[in-house]
Design a protein around this nucleic acid. Structure first.
Length: 821
RNA sequence: GCCCCGAUAGCCCAAUGGCAGAGGCAGGCGACUUAAAAUCGCCACAGUGUGGGUUCGAGUCCCACUCGGGGCACCA
């Protein structure tokens, strides 16, 4: 046993011992402990771990280790989100095989993670690029397909010219590619989709159950993203067209104010309406459409941009007023929202107002909101008010008018109540190599034919000889041995679908795969799912607030409907950790402010870095590495270690006979520490450990001395508390105290409430809210006694300065407040 | 433009409506030492972004504003 705290020695010493005793094995059949599933978002293997990983895994580990310490059977697995573009791009750049590159990175990260001493169950590791994993992506895809939840359609999709692949809506941020920041363009392509919109209502409504357990921010972002609105579908007859067209509006009350209609320029309907107009219109429309197609989302969404459009010289008939309204085509109406056509009410909609002003179209106020008449002010009013100029709706308030308008439309069979979502279906096919092949075979005779499940997995062909350079179509198409197959239905020559799946498919259900990551016979075991799932605590960055979390929620609901899981939400609680910054900005090589994790670990030790991460502040806040001091963390750990080292009583010491004041501090620590950790206030938890350390130091040096059993009791609980942040140090302390490993499972002492009760405390007297006197009183003092004491105080009399006490509030035993006003 | 979160000491951060300070960093002083490091001890520093309000009492609750961060933003 060493006499000095030696960081590198204890790191080398404990790792092999933990490997042997496996304190974090969650797979024991006879385990009687209650269950807890703690999950960290799995990493992408793009090189070694960095500071951001170090923070995330330090915090997740605090939670996992806390519940182990509290006697739970904690499943805390890790794996790798191993498919995806970065591996492929890096592989292309270096002329390597993406597979080899990926597995090398995984090996390196795994080594780093083990050294970082995360409480992972290393028997549950998964890698999404393993056929044994992605086979079940394919199986799930086919199950979705069977249920009509996976389908192919042709539409204008987001296209990243740099990545040379399509993107899901969620992957386009401000018109830019989420990955590479290129400007995203549109392209008409036939692509695979998952029908998330079928689940839109549930995805929105079930957010209510997460309230309080997920960060409000994430819930709000998901609500915005799903974007449900209620309104009405309204039919307008079109002159010279047999069928009426339907428009969606949230304001059917303003129907009488509809002075024109607008159809999305890039919609089929616009093309049709233009085609049947005069040659003049056809020409103007064609050139306008050309321009619209050239512009990208950034230009389209620019606020300064003037509205543009073409009058189609066609007219619709207002179903309520019978009025004839002109139809325009414009790009400010979206083809893929609602019906791609709107009724425009410039008086009460800012966008329609802008268009009306631009094109000199009439404005008619139909809701008097009390603001200036929009016909004059040229400013649209959207608030509540009284309906005017609206026939049978006149005099009604907005809400009643909406209901009444829908009622009338329904009576006349010219419309009905309706709702719409901002959420679109999830585009899942990608024209890249390093992903899960879509298990469909295209046959000229039979069409889309699912690969029979017994033929799964459809393994990725070797990348040898394939050109992985992005070129707009999947590299797999060129793997002729692989792509050419016979149709499973009719046997004639057919081709495999050569696209691969979005990697967000992989991560949408991985938390269930951890239950039995090596199974060849099922995606996950249903009984195991009953036992372990859903995830009790999920930990990860807020960057996945929409994408990954929405998709996982969608998958969970589908799996629920398939009868495979008995819950509807995958992640019961969610903690979003912040980022690690340096001098106020994100670390990057190009900024020159990169802090290397490996160097930090070498310099200060694993425990000090982990502790620094936990102590820096609330977990959801960003950590500026310039503001924290890993050296100070190391110093504190040495100080804590010496406490254990200095203890002179044996494990047989009777704590009851120990110094009461020290014991009282230890038990208060147990209570406060527990509260802090459960409330995610890890920084406070660390501070409590420091406080206890300070008290024990004093007790040893100048108090009851190192042989007092109370000091041992305190040191033991300190080691257990520290085990959440600094596993090596804590384990070594535990050994210094005479115990066998592992401290991770030692379990906190029960809080002895009787030790928390104090005989006396300091009561304070305020005069008009200001502190004027204080004195020691018995905790059992009565209100009358305390009042008398306060009124008898000379300091209080001075403060009252002869004024009369108007009101005396007594809160025995702590406080008296005398007001004189 | 709309919505959300935040603002406490030189810095990072604590504080069930009840004494503004738990903890740390940086700083100062002292003990130990031949000296330094390490260690140990002690000290100082703000009245809580601004202005109102509720209350016996407000960092904490309410309203308005300023600044900072984040989200959404032609979705009819």
């Amino acid at each position: 046993m060493q006499d000095e705290y030696n960081v590198s020695a204890i790191q080398d010493k404990w790792l092999p011992i933990w490997d042997q005793i496996k304190p974090f094995d969650s797979g024991r059949k006879d385990d009687q402990r209650p269950k807890k599933y703690v999950l960290d978002m799995f990493p992408y293997p793009s090189g070694d771990l960095h500071m951001g990983h170090a923070e995330a895994y330090a915090l997740g580990d605090v939670i996992a280790r806390y519940w182990i310490q509290r006697g739970y059977n904690v499943m805390h697995p890790i794996g790798w989100d191993a498919f995806g573009l970065p591996a492929e791009n890096a592989a292309i750049k270096r002329g390597l095989d993406p597979r080899g590159w990926t597995y090398e990175n995984i090996a390196q990260q795994k080594t780093s993670m083990r050294r970082y001493a995360c409480s992972f169950d290393w028997d549950r590791v998964l890698q999404t690029c393993d056929p044994i994993y992605y086979r079940w992506n394919q199986w799930l895809f086919l199950e979705f397909y069977k249920r009509g939840l996976a389908y192919r359609k042709n539409s204008n999709v987001n296209w990243c010219p740099s990545c040379q692949t399509v993107l899901a809506n969620e992957q386009v941020v401000q018109g830019l590619c989420e990955r590479c920041d290129s400007t995203v363009t549109k392209k008409a392509l036939t692509q695979w989709y998952f029908k998330v919109t079928d689940y839109a209502d549930r995805l929105l409504d079930d957010l209510n159950e997460l309230e309080g357990n997920w960060p409000q921010k994430v819930i709000t972002m998901q609500r915005n993203w799903i974007g449900r609105s209620f309104g009405a579908n309204v039919k307008f007859q079109i002159e010279g067209r047999g069928e009426p067209v339907t428009v969606y509006t949230t304001r059917p009350d303003t129907l009488y104010g509809a002075t024109f209609m607008v159809v999305a320029a890039d919609s089929d309907l616009a093309a049709e309406l233009a085609a049947e107009a005069g040659p003049d219109v056809r020409m103007k429309f064609a050139s306008y459409l050309d321009e619209v197609k050239k512009s990208n989302d950034i230009e389209r969404l620019s606020l300064e941009r003037k509205k543009t459009g073409v009058f189609l010289e066609r007219y619709g008939i207002n179903p309520l007023s019978g009025e004839r309204v002109p139809i325009w085509a414009s790009d400010y109406v979206l083809a893929d929202y609602g019906t791609g056509m709107i009724m425009a009410v410039p008086a009460h909609d800012e966008r329609d107002m802008d268009f009306a002003l631009e094109m000199d179209l009439p404005i008619r106020m139909v809701v008097d909101t009390g603001e200036e008449n929009p016909e004059i002010s040229k400013v649209a009013t959207a608030g509540d008010g009284k309906l005017v100029n609206s026939g049978e709706l006149d005099g009604l308030a907005k809400k009643e008018a909406i209901a009444r308008a829908i009622e009338i439309l329904e009576q006349r069979q010219m419309g009905e109540r309706s709702k719409n979502f901002r959420l679109r279906d999830w585009l899942i096919s990608r024209q890249r190599y390093w992903g899960t092949p879509i298990p469909i075979i295209h046959c000229d005779a039979c069409g889309e034919v699912p690969v029979p499940t017994e033929q799964l997995p459809v393994e990725l062909p070797d990348s040898d000889g394939l050109d992985l350079q992005p070129k707009g179509s999947s590299p797999l198409g060129a793997a002729s041995d692989w792509v050419n197959v016979s149709c499973p239905k009719c046997g004639s020559a057919a081709k495999r679908d050569s696209d691969t799946m979005d990697t967000f498919v992989d991560s949408s259900w991985y938390f269930l795969r951890y239950l039995n990551p090596n199974s060849e016979t099922e995606a996950f075991n249903l009984d195991q799912a009953k036992q372990w799932a859903p995830v009790d605590q999920y930990v990860g960055g807020v960057t996945h607030a929409i994408l990954h979390l929405l998709y996982s929620r969608f998958f969970t609901k589908v799996l629920h409907d398939m009868g495979m899981v008995d819950f509807q939400e995958p992640f019961t609680r969610l903690l979003n950790q912040g980022m690690v910054l340096m001098n106020g900005s994100a670390m990057s090589k190009s900024r020159g402010n990169l802090v290397r994790l490996s160097e930090q670990l070498d310099e200060h030790g694993v425990d000090a870095i982990r502790l620094t991460m936990a102590f820096a502040g609330p977990p959801e806040d960003d950590i500026d590495w310039a503001d924290v001091s890993p050296a100070a963390s190391a110093k504190f750990l040495a100080r804590a270690w010496r406490i254990a080292h200095d203890v002179q009583s044996t494990t047989a010491a009777e704590v009851e006979s120990g110094d009461r004041a020290v014991r009282s501090v230890t038990h208060a620590f147990l209570k406060d520490f527990t509260d802090a950790i459960e409330g995610f206030k890890f920084n406070v938890g660390v501070a409590k450990c420091m406080e206890l350390t300070n008290v024990l130091r004093k007790a040893i040096d100048t108090g009851c001395g190192p042989a007092d059993p109370a000091v041992r009791e305190g040191a033991e609980e300190l080691a257990k508390g520290l085990s959440l942040f600094a596993p090596y140090t804590a384990e070594d302390m535990w050994q210094q105290l005479g115990f066998e490993p592992s401290v991770a499972q030692a379990g906190f002492r029960e809080v002895d409430e009787s030790l928390l009760v104090k005989d006396t405390l300091t009561a304070v007297v305020q005069v008009d809210g200001k502190l004027r006197d204080k004195f020691e009183v018995s905790t059992g003092i009565s209100e009358e006694e305390l009042r008398a004491l306060a009124l008898g105080s000379a300091a209080v009399a001075r403060a009252m300065d002869g004024k009369e006490a108007k009101n005396i509030i007594v809160r025995a035993p702590k406080l008296v407040n005398i007001s004189t006003k």
